[in-house]
Design a protein around this nucleic acid. Structure first.
Lengths: 138, 138
DNA sequence: CCGGATCCGGGGCGATACTG
DNA sequence: CAGTATCGCCCCGGATCCGG
């Protein structure tokens, strides 16, 4: 999340090579801690809606603040729509847009890769750390 | 990233729901600023190698420090191999492993999505911000 | 019930300077 | 040429309080 706020920082030298890299911008979004989780949960409920508290229940560990922030980011990005029932207390519902659903498909690809290969990465980490330890000892 | 260093932080309540979420761990890796760029550049050169300075040249804006950190993370994750020619001055070469190449494939999917849809996201942002502005004015 | 406001800590990331 | 150490900024994200 390094270059999120669009306004506010003009680049020093005048050309943002970042704008040529939509992948960077996408990663800045789905890289935030709760975004991918929220998208996934909403996708599981699609095309139905979920209320705030229900979302919170399905995303273990998320705080109300961060869930709120995350959802509003998604709304701002056009990936989620927010529907408020003007009751008191209010009921707020969220659902994925089609754009959001298409993102979910792309994310599913990543998840598959992650499930298939994160164990290998963990293993590589272990090997690497063992080398560190042994090289420290002798 | 929030939960990178594997050792060092035991969860407060005893169960890390994060470990059930390899996607989170993957995003913690490819979400770092230069990782995906480095993987892409190395993939373009694959199965050949690239030297440190050459990588730096092909990744505009990266500092030597961050490139070094990024590459070592990739090595630790088993996505990249590092080969040193014991000359003076030393020559260090990097290339993707097969695991790294398979990650590149997954990333390519994300890139495609990003190229296809980031404009829509930008547009949604614009709309959203215009609403903000107009609701502020009246 | 929903979520905004504020305070605060941690860590990614950059600039600079130094080593081999 | 390649890499590390130090310093500092910035901002994500958590805790808490408050408002509608």
């Amino acid at each position: 999340m390094t270059t999120r706020s669009a306004h506010a920082k003009t680049p020093v030298r005048g050309d943002l090579f970042d704008s040529q890299c939509p992948t960077r911008q996408l990663l800045d979004r789905i890289g935030t801690k709760w975004t991918s989780m929220a998208v996934k949960v909403l996708a599981q409920a699609a095309p139905g809606e979920l209320r705030f508290a229900e979302l919170r229940r399905r995303i273990p560990g998320v705080s109300q603040k961060m869930l709120s922030v995350t959802l509003h980011s998604l709304v701002r990005d056009g990936l989620v729509v927010r529907r408020v029932e003007p009751t008191v207390p209010p009921r707020v519902h969220y659902r994925l847009t089609e754009l959001g659903s298409s993102l979910e498909l792309a994310l599913a690809g990543l998840r598959t890769w992650a499930e298939d290969h994160m164990a290998e990465i963990d293993h590589a980490n272990t090997i690497h750390d063992e080398r560190d330890a042994s090289s420290a000892t002798g």
